[in-house]
Write a protein that binds this DNA or RNA. Structure first.
Lengths: 153, 153
DNA sequence: TATTGTTATACTCTATAACTATA
DNA sequence: TATAGTTATAGAGTATAACAATA
């Protein structure tokens, strides 16, 4: 792995942060590929599916969607247009500020993202490799990482 | 979490697979956002950076790149054209089969992807939260998941 | 005949800049 | 004047279909 320490074969050295980053990158890319491929089979681009997944968690104004997608706000108009045409999301005028439009996933939108997640067989198969105890450990570690990882860079 | 078992507060129930999938999705998306944002700062689109990361690991024929990127082979022509124009990759004619063009990252390409990885501060900060022992555990779990997760769906 | 890479076309994603409606 | 959303435009990513070169 890093070769800086000579330990026994049964107790490998602690991985360097670079090792972990590389593994994290590979896992992140592989997950995203499964997500994009399954979304495509369901007639959604990866961006449409990602937007839908975000909106299922909570309704957001146009600019909030842009933040979540890390893209310019101008793109969100067309993106939401296409999702709205297919009945997957709904625009609602903001109550306090009429400039704001709140976008929410419809029932059809929620069903679509549920179907995509259920169909991510590669990811399911990978997680099936773990025992209950390992799943608990992984879940706990990821839950710790998530708040920091979701901050803006 | 799932509420199906009533255990003590210090020993939470084993997360369901759905819980873990959701956490995995959130982590995967957050990682990808950091990657895309940093790549953009370095003048690369996320697809260009991903292709470069793949080619740093190993040279690939055009169709191999398409497989890794989960996209049609016809797209790869333009993608590699743009990377080649900037001196980040190089096309080489295959030795055994002259139809095949092997694409390899140049030194500049390797340097570019190294710079992107080093600049992913959000991901670095997240991983800094873990102790050496936790890093080892996470690394081992991810290493187990990776071969299955990298298979085609 | 089958396969590799390319080209042509059309649609989607993306950023920048300018515009409108509202605050 | 500042902000939320939109429109216009141009470059990049994407799939489908058709093509040339090679196997």
């Amino acid at each position: 792995m890093n070769g800086t320490t000579a330990q026994s074969a049964t107790a490998p050295a602690v991985p360097t942060k670079a090792d972990l980053i590389e593994e994290f990158a590979a896992i992140g890319n592989a997950y995203y590929q499964d997500f994009a491929a399954v979304a495509a089979r369901h007639g959604l681009t990866s961006v449409q599916a990602k937007a839908l997944a975000v909106l299922v968690r909570q309704p957001l104004p146009m600019r909030g969607i842009a933040e979540q997608l890390v893209c310019d706000a101008s793109n969100v108009t067309g993106l939401v247009d296409r999702l709205e045409t297919r009945g997957l999301v709904r625009r609602e005028v903001g109550a306090s500020d009429r400039r704001i439009k709140i976008v929410a996933a419809t029932e059809a939108g929620e069903a679509a993202i549920r179907a995509v997640r259920a169909d991510m067989q590669t990811t399911h198969q990978a997680l099936d490799l773990l025992s209950d105890g390992e799943r608990s450990v992984l879940f706990e570690l990821l839950t710790r990482l998530r708040p920091v990882l979701e901050q803006k860079s």
